[in-house]
Design a protein around this nucleic acid. Structure first.
Length: 494
RNA sequence: CGGGGCGUAGCGCAGUCUGGUAGCGCGCACGGUUCGGGACCGUGAGGUCGGAGGUUCGAAUCCUCUCGCCCCGACCA
């Protein structure tokens, strides 16, 4: 353990990015490691951000015609087995429930009751396709039952070898949409629509520019015919897969015998999609914008958008400040802005400034006796750390537009970063050199899994996606020299 | 699963090599002085040193076993 942990300052991004990340998560009170290996405790401040994400996403799902439902945590092993590729993909990271009862251990404590062995093991869901499609068999009979557009918010478990707060935990929270359609075209349309929803959410709410693309077959979801994804670039030059939307074809309908009668009175298998984003988005949010002073939150996701810090010596001073602040708070709230007036007397103003910077509150107002006399307030921006003194009059309108301005500025900054760190590369030498520096690399690829694998072995770089908007461009594969008709995006990834 | 590190007060650590009354900083409680960028002084509370066994007059320290966590790889959202 280094002495960094004792200091008030965070580790610097430039010196130790992953230590910076871990510390920011803990010190900003977002989450902490739990007593259970690989599982995190999401703390109230972190959960408040997640709730804002959920709210915005849920609204977007509803607006695109989806309904929420809830399916069981447990998946019978026989269900998971039914779709072969799916089973194979998830088998090695499943938690398995084998017994349903404990009993007193003669040596003290409790023991698993050997008489309580389950007839069939239950898998704690790593994803819910199996359970849901088993259910859909009963829900779908006719073309009139389609499309079936369902989402669920839940927790899932994937027994990962190595975990990191938010980015990869053994248990995590997510939403999973599972839809059934009458035609292939409709299902593909849905897959792309939801990818679009994710991209819009990432850009408009997280202020995170993302690339939309297709996964290479190697990186495809187990059981999918096509996996679409959004990929974002983090400040250390690594890519983060931030959301996926899968076109599942008829694989699950066939595995679970989900058939419907079409308008011609013929039996057909339903077409499926699934799509999800998880608490990993919290990791994306943190890594995309934050700095060496702490978290930088986009106003739309900040639990507290404006914090007001009084600067005073005596209780009388505080009372005078409060008399001015109270109506201001009311006015800001009436304008739909979330405000905290921190009149806690046990910490001094300087401490509070640092604390709210660590927590990423977008706007800080400071009001002292000087301001009271002048009818002013100090307005500080978290994103660029600038301060200015402004008149109290008309402040609410100013803050309102300032929050929009900050939201846009954070996005622009992240976009500029991505553009500066996206490179077109045409030779293998350049590729190897550039991958060490990080960022997205646009390069030609011959389309084979073997080449992709070799590139990964040599450089740790993977194909993040084949961009949907990639222009037709003839070139030679960076590795084999074989012909290619478009550039794909390579990067090292989380 | 390989490699490394670490379990001592709520948190971060020293003490372990070389066995001898369990310490420091932060935090916490109380009192006082402070207060426009992480204040200071004083007093005080807080520990089965991860667990089990062993060696010893005596173990945080030495030996054996064991449990757990973190970091770096391989694997993955």
């Amino acid at each position: 353990m280094s002495s960094l942990f004792m200091s008030k300052a965070l580790p610097k991004r430039s010196e130790n990015y992953s230590e910076w990340y871990n510390e920011i998560v803990k010190r900003a009170d977002l989450a902490e490691n739990s007593a259970v290996r690989g599982c995190m405790v999401i703390k109230p401040y972190g959960f408040a951000i997640w709730e804002k994400m959920q709210r915005a996403l849920d609204d977007m799902f509803k607006a695109t015609g989806h309904q929420n439902a809830y399916f069981p945590l447990f998946v019978p092993k026989s269900f998971l087995e039914k779709e072969e590729e799916h089973a194979e993909g998830f088998a090695k990271e499943c938690a398995v429930v084998t017994h349903y009862r404990l009993k007193a251990d003669p040596n003290g404590g409790l023991m698993v009751d050997p008489n309580a062995k389950l007839e069939e093991e239950l898998i704690i869901r790593p994803t819910s396709e199996a359970v849901i499609w088993n259910t859909y068999r009963n829900w779908i009979q006719s073309w009139r039952d389609l499309p079936l557009l369902i989402n669920q918010w839940c927790n899932i478990v994937r027994w990962e070898m190595r975990t990191r707060l938010f980015l990869r935990t053994a248990e995590f929270l997510w939403q999973e949409g599972h839809t059934a359609h009458a035609t292939e075209a409709e299902a593909i349309e849905e897959t792309e629509r939801m990818l679009g929803v994710y991209a819009t959410f990432a850009e408009d709410w997280i202020a995170l520019p993302v690339l939309k693309g297709l996964k290479s077959p190697n990186e495809r979801f187990a059981g999918a015919l096509e996996t679409y994804c959004i990929e974002a670039l983090m400040q250390d030059g690594k890519a983060l897969q931030s959301g996926t939307s899968h076109f599942l074809g008829q694989n699950f309908a066939k595995a679970f015998d989900v058939k419907f009668v079409n308008k011609e009175n013929e039996q057909e298998y339903a077409w499926a999609t699934s799509w999800g984003v998880s608490t990993r988005l919290m990791g994306a949010l943190i890594m995309a914008h934050s700095d060496d002073k702490g978290l930088v939150l986009p106003p739309k996701l900040a639990p507290i958008q404006v914090v007001i810090v009084p600067i005073h010596r005596s209780p009388e001073d505080l009372a005078a400040i409060t008399a001015v602040v109270d109506p201001l708070v009311a006015e800001l709230r009436a304008a739909g802005i979330s405000v905290k007036f921190d009149d806690n007397d046990s910490q001094r103003s300087g401490w509070k400034f640092a604390e709210y910077e660590l927590k990423g509150v977008p706007v800080r107002l400071a009001i002292g006796m000087r301001d009271l006399e002048a009818g002013t307030v100090e307005v500080a921006r978290r994103d660029n750390l600038t301060k200015e003194t402004r008149p109290l009059a008309g402040l609410t309108d100013h803050i309102s537009s300032l929050l929009d301005e900050i939201q846009a500025a954070i996005y622009q900054k992240a976009l500029a970063f991505r553009e500066e760190n996206t490179h077109r590369v045409d030779t293998w030498e350049d590729f190897k050199a550039q991958i060490e520096k990080g960022g997205f690399i646009l390069a030609h690829w011959d389309g084979t899994a073997e080449t992709e694998e070799k590139i990964k072995d040599e450089t740790k770089a993977t194909i993040r996606c084949i961009p949907l908007d990639a222009p037709e461009e003839h070139g030679k594969c960076i590795f084999t020299g074989n012909p290619s008709n478009k550039r794909v995006v390579f990067a090292r990834a989380y």
